[in-house]
């Protein structure tokens, strides 16, 4: 049995999860347990369904054809049935991604689709769609001295004094070969995320295993007309709307989440952490400009 700390939760797992933060918590005391199947192919009494999933009450079924099925229950339990011939390693990315994202939604957490990095103990989140360049930007910031807090699932919780904190999702980034080559990070390259895929785990020079106070949320976009490169502040109503849109699988959040509770959490978060549109110029060669501009902007917030 493996034990991990993921997005602030103590997790016991029968599957090894690369990149997750190991911790010595006894399995019996875990908040979440991940174990092997069996998992049905359909749910009785499903109230919502999509091409790869079904939902019935507090049970969520996720099917990845020819790979595995996952049953996520009540924010506590993930059962995994892996198809014959598929390695645990190839399934781990889906456990730490969609399955854990669903579980966090079931627990009513504020879950952003984004990366987070910290400097002097304070964190920023970088949200955006798949392919927007979140992990690449996070990697560039880590190369410049920041510590990694989250790579893809950025859960935000409140501490005892009701300040928003980013809860780390692991110690490793996942980067495509193209980004690794451009950032010259080949030395830090770990295993492939899936066998035969050119996307790899990357060990950043520093990672934070502790929750970090959230200073700001940047929504990453590419400079396509009419957007122009730069950093723009978002007015509160836009920020509230954007926070919803930048959730990890917003459609899920609408189906699973408790609306009033989430709205209150969003309001508290935005009371402490301002939200900005970070519009980056197109092209890798401009990445350092974006990093520099972001660093200056972030510093100006902390003063």
């Amino acid at each position: 049995m493996f034990t991990y700390l993921i997005s602030g939760l103590h997790v016991s797992s029968e599957l090894e999860l690369p990149g997750a933060i190991h911790e010595g918590c006894p399995a019996a005391a875990a908040d979440v347990s991940i174990r092997r199947g069996p998992v049905p192919t359909a749910l009785d009494g499903a109230t919502a369904r999509g091409p790869t999933w079904e939902m019935a009450g507090e049970v969520f079924l996720l099917r990845v054809p020819r790979l595995a099925r996952f049953r996520i229950t009540g924010g506590r339990d993930i059962a995994v049935e892996i198809e014959p011939g598929i390695s645990d390693h190839d399934v781990a990315g889906f456990v730490l991604g969609t399955a854990f994202g669903i579980l966090l939604h079931q627990r009513g957490a504020l879950v952003l689709h984004g990366a987070a990095v910290a400097k002097d103990g304070r964190a920023i989140a970088i949200c955006g769609a798949s392919g927007a360049g979140k992990s690449t930007l996070a990697a560039a910031l880590c190369r410049g001295g920041c510590a990694l807090v989250a790579d893809d699932i950025c859960a935000v919780g409140l501490d005892a004094s009701r300040r928003p904190m980013v809860l780390p999702d692991g110690r490793q980034l996942k980067l495509w070969k193209e980004s690794i080559d451009r950032l010259d990070l080949a030395e830090l390259r770990g295993e492939a995320v899936r066998r035969s895929f050119e996307k790899y785990y990357i060990d950043p020079s520093a990672a934070r295993a502790e929750p970090s106070p959230l200073s700001a949320i940047y929504v990453l976009r590419e400079a396509r007309a009419p957007l122009k490169a730069g950093i723009e502040s978002l007015a509160l109503p836009d920020a509230v709307r954007m926070l919803d849109y930048e959730a990890y699988r917003p459609g899920l959040r609408a189906k699973i989440g408790q609306k009033a509770q989430l709205l209150a959490l969003a309001a508290t978060t935005l009371g402490h952490a301002k939200m900005f549109l970070l519009i980056r110029p197109r092209g890798f060669e401009k990445l350092q400009d974006t990093v520099d501009e972001l660093q200056v902007h972030w510093d100006s917030l902390e003063r």
Binding site: G50, W53, T98, W176, F197, P250
Partner: peptide
């Protein structure tokens, strides 16, 4: 991704 809930970067 919105329809399948899956990370398309983990699929061939």
């Amino acid at each position: 991704e919105a329809a399948t809930m899956l990370d398309s970067g983990l699929l061939s």
